[in-house]
Each structure stands twice: as structure tokens, then as C-alpha cells.
Amino acid sequence: MKQIKAKPDISLITTYHQQYEADGYFIIPECFKSPALQALTAEVERIYQFWMSDNERDVQQYAMVNMHGLTEAIYFQGGECPDRERGHFFNSLVPINMIETLSGVFGNKLYFHNTQLFFNPYKNRRKPYWHRDTQYNGKTEDVQKDYLKTLLNLHIRIPLIDEVGIELIPGTHRRWDTDKERNVRLQLSGNENHQPLPGSKLIDLKAGDALVFSAQMIHRGHYCKPQRLALDLCVGKPHPDTIKYIDNKHLPLQSQIQYINNPCWYENAINHLDDK
């Protein structure tokens, strides 16, 4: 398929850029519209149930809150044309308005990294916990601080059900923790990582909205009643410490690219496979 070009709204791009620079996030309302949203939701739920059939025991035992790798080929085997079906799923994840908006805000070097799906933990046995994604990569705190200047890793959170499902601390994509934030996030000095923090903002999203936020900022999920089902796209700019984690099992094959209207994020990732 040929790439579909659209003219981005320059004033809106400017607003989103300013919001991101100040707060570390912005919301694209109704980024996914019906019936595309309905089709995407049905496909995600199919993949989720497939995955759950093999992982239900772990989900319950460890009170898991997410799965990843929804684009893996295993979820598209057995159909009439697996290449077409998998290509269509890749296509459904990245509508042109999303690509044009994020390219306007962050430039054209963004690449697709992975997918996640967030849901409630079994019997809500887990409390929402504050974190920065970079705290899990084994790097020193000084390196993590430097990432605030050098690394762009984004979450694109797409609720498939209306939710108030994520809480952020605006501005922490550009600054390091206060003593209070650090003690709570890392559970130091008798603190626990689920304790409330000052200055936080709970985000209210409708199904089909897209919340774009920095993976490096302090944030936590919330478990919504009665159900939570939030798709997450991991997107970033090339960096030596992140491109090594690009995995081709999450990316389309050349035989599947033809079914993707706007494959630039996927192609950018494929082009960096040799840089690992």
C-alpha cells in the first residue's frame, strides 16, 4: 500500500509540542474512531484471550497487570492469509493522524518498538506503583538522569474502554525526583511505592483517545472498575541503549509491509536491526 499523506494542523502541533515540553504528555482526542476502534478492540481482545489461555496461572499468581508483544506472528497463524491478517493488524495500530501528529511534535525518526496491553490485576491484589521505566534497565542513577536530556521513549496509551487509568507527575520528564518522590518510588526510608505524591494528575480518557507521554517521567497505572483494557504502543527515537532491544519478532515481514498504509515507524525500526 502507498503511504497516505495528510496535512497536519500546524497550530495543533504547536500546542501539543508546548504541552509535551512543559508537562511530558498530551492527549489526542478520538485518535481512533469507530468502526476502526471497534475492529481494533475485537482483534486485541482475541489476542488477549489467546495469550491468557497460556498464562492465566501466572496472571493470578503474580497479579500481573500487562502483557506485551501483541504483534508476534503466533497470534496470526491458522487464518486464510497470515501475512495479510498480521499486516492489517500492524496497519490498524498506527492511523495517519497519529503518525502526522507525532512526526510534527518529535520529528521523522520515530520507530516502533513493541506493544503492551494493560488490564486489572487478579482480584485487584496489586496496588498502583510509581516508577520511571528507566529504573528497570540496570543503569546507574546518574545515567538515568542523563536520559532525561538524551533519550526519547514514548508510551502511546489507547484505552479500549473509557478509563481513569493512569496518573502522571507533570514535568518529571525534564527534572529528577524530589527527595519525597525518590523515597516513595524506590521505597526508601520506610516509604512504599503506592503512596500518594504531591503534584500528580490523574488522566481521564475515553475509548479511542491517545495519551502520549514520556516513559521516563514518574507515572503509575490505576486499576479501573469493573474492567481495564488499555493498549500501549512503545515508540522512540534511536539511542544506543535502546535500539539493541529492537526485536524483529515484533516487526512486520517484508511480505506484510504491503498491507500497511503508513509503515514508516516499522521501517525505521527494521533499518536499525543491523545497528544492534
Rank of each mutant, 00 (worst) to 15 (best):
K123I: 09
R125P: 03
P128W: 01
P128R: 05
Y129E: 15
W130I: 11
R132G: 12
T134D: 15
Q135A: 12
Y136Q: 11
G138I: 11
K139R: 12
E141F: 11
V143A: 04
Q144C: 10
Q144T: 04
Y147G: 00
Y147P: 00
Y147M: 04
L148T: 01
K149M: 12
K149T: 11
K149F: 04
L151W: 02
L151M: 13
L152K: 03
H155E: 13
R157I: 09
I158L: 13
I158W: 09
I158G: 08
P159N: 07
L160R: 03
I161D: 08
D162N: 05
E163W: 00
E163Q: 14
E163Y: 02
G165V: 00
G165I: 00
E167A: 04
E167Q: 12
I169N: 03
I169R: 02
G171Y: 08
T172A: 11
H173P: 14
R174H: 03
R175S: 13
D179P: 06
K180D: 14
K180W: 02
E181I: 06
N183H: 15
L186H: 13
L186W: 06
S189A: 12
S189Y: 01
G190N: 05
N191Y: 14
E192P: 03
H194I: 08
P196S: 05
P196H: 09
P198S: 14
G199L: 09
S200L: 06
K201L: 09
K201R: 11
L202P: 01
D204Y: 06
K206E: 00
K206I: 07
K206Q: 10
K206G: 00
D209K: 06
D209C: 07
V212A: 13
S214C: 05
S214M: 02
M217Y: 15
M217W: 14
H219S: 05
H219R: 13
H219L: 13
R220L: 14
G221W: 05
G221S: 07
G221T: 14
P226Q: 06
R228E: 04
R228T: 15
L229I: 09
L229C: 08
L229R: 13
A230G: 01
A230E: 13
L231W: 06
L231D: 07
C234I: 13
C234Y: 06
K237F: 02
P238F: 00
P240W: 15
D241Q: 04
T242G: 00
Y245H: 06
N248V: 05
Q254H: 12
Q254F: 09
S255K: 15
Q256L: 02
Q256S: 05
Q258T: 11
N261Q: 11
C264V: 12
Y266R: 02
